[in-house]
């Protein structure tokens, strides 16, 4: 399989089955013609990206490949300069992050921040905004899922980094998203936390679509059924998970970033 020179203007086509893309158009999240530049530097240039309910889609690539930008554009926290984003057939390009979250697109953050001044339980309560009249059942169950039950009544700011990631995940899940965007959930986690993360990701319901941006290949291997590789903002390769993981060019790209990831770990 030849690797196309990444500076070519033509987009490397996605290998997704047209039937799957059609399904995504009706029931999932589809982005077309996404182009995002920052002061004349192309950050992202993706002709299409589609995810349907139940998909487990990983986006990998070296640092600066545009992965977080893609996530931010899909989540609505970054305004799309060009292109269209549709969700369940409805165009949502101009909609902000809050609207998309209420529509069912949830996310975690690369640098998990908590709500200062709130307890851990209150943070999760805030995540399920539309469950205001619900009892505490859902937040407490989520805390148990992420292993923070003992911390429920403590200020959220007292949590360690790994626990903050878990809390961020619980907060995202509290919104009962239909599409979950995970931004490097494994970064900086200890092995224990990593195991717990993999367990949690394994329990996610089958109807939930998950887009995972990640450097940690173990997490990608455990979760993803489809991988897109980004490089310099463009699609370098995509395909079924084991296919992409076996590709030698991806190994080279990824070896660099994996080393960088290990170096960055405390």
């Amino acid at each position: 399989m030849t690797t196309r020179h990444v500076d070519a203007v033509d987009h490397i086509p996605s290998r997704r089955d047209p039937a799957d893309i059609g399904r995504a158009h009706d029931t999932g999240l589809v982005a077309t013609g996404l182009y995002h530049a920052h002061q004349r530097l192309t950050v992202l240039d993706l002709d299409s990206f589609a995810i349907a309910p139940g998909d487990r889609h990983a986006v990998i690539g070296p640092n600066g490949a545009g992965k977080s930008t893609l996530l931010n554009l899909l989540a609505g926290s970054t305004r799309a300069q060009t292109g269209t984003i549709t969700y369940q057939g409805q165009t949502i390009t101009r909609r902000g992050a809050a609207w998309r979250a209420r529509a069912g697109i949830g996310r975690t953050f690369q640098h998990p921040t908590v709500y200062p001044g709130l307890t851990v339980l209150d943070c999760v309560r805030m995540g399920g905004w539309h469950h205001r009249r619900n009892p505490d059942r859902v937040p407490l169950e989520l805390l148990e899922l992420v292993g923070l039950t003992g911390h429920a009544d403590y200020p959220a700011t007292t949590l360690s980094h790994g626990h903050r990631r878990m809390l961020d995940l619980a907060v995202a899940l509290a919104g009962q998203p239909r599409v979950l965007l995970l931004d490097e959930p494994a970064a900086g986690l200890t092995d224990t936390d990593l195991t717990r993360l993999l367990d949690i990701l394994g329990t996610l319901p089958g109807w939930m679509a998950v887009i995972l941006v990640e450097h940690h290949m173990d997490v990608v291997a455990a979760l993803a059924d489809w991988i897109t590789v980004l490089h310099h903002g463009r699609r370098h390769l995509d395909g079924p998970a084991d296919h992409v993981r076996a590709d030698p060019t991806v190994r080279t790209l990824h070896l660099d970033s994996a080393e960088a990831g290990h170096a960055a770990r405390p």
Binding site: S77, R102, G106, V114, P116, L118, M126, G127, A172
Partner: peptide
């Protein structure tokens, strides 16, 4: 609760659907 959260971390609140 709502106001403290929104003041403290607007981005996370918006990402959870709060206007």
């Amino acid at each position: 609760l709502l106001l403290t959260a929104v003041r403290g971390n607007e981005t996370r609140a918006a990402a959870s659907g709060h206007p």
